[in-house]
Amino acid sequence: MARSTSRDAEALFHSLRSAYVATPSSLKIIDLYVGFAVFTAVIQVVYMAVVGSFPFNSFLSGVLSCVGTAVLAVCLRIQVNKENKEFKDLPPERAFADFVLCNLVLHLVIMNFLG
């Protein structure tokens, strides 16, 4: 039982990797960006758990900045993905402009909230 599960898992990882290799490199960059943002958020949460959440607005703006960046990047990734049929008629330039605008708003708010 255990062996078959581990074999399955192996096969799964293999096919996942092979499927992922095929994605275009621009999307991979976005994925890296998302991963980095999430990683930063996790670090901050761990720090908060260890040290305490005293300047709560700073903690909140730090974490939400990372989460927000990640979410927006995921949105961008969805929109520029060629395989996604829903956004066929949305040019990637437009998607990127929206992304920048949204980020601008996000970080203006965060700077305001940072305290």
Binding site: L64, V71, L72, I78, C102, L106, F113
Partner: peptide, 21 residues
Amino acid sequence: SSRLYIAYAPLVVLGTLLASL
């Protein structure tokens, strides 16, 4: 759909931040 994701996820993050202002 991915449109649902785009409609909801940014709203929660941005909305929460804006509300705390």
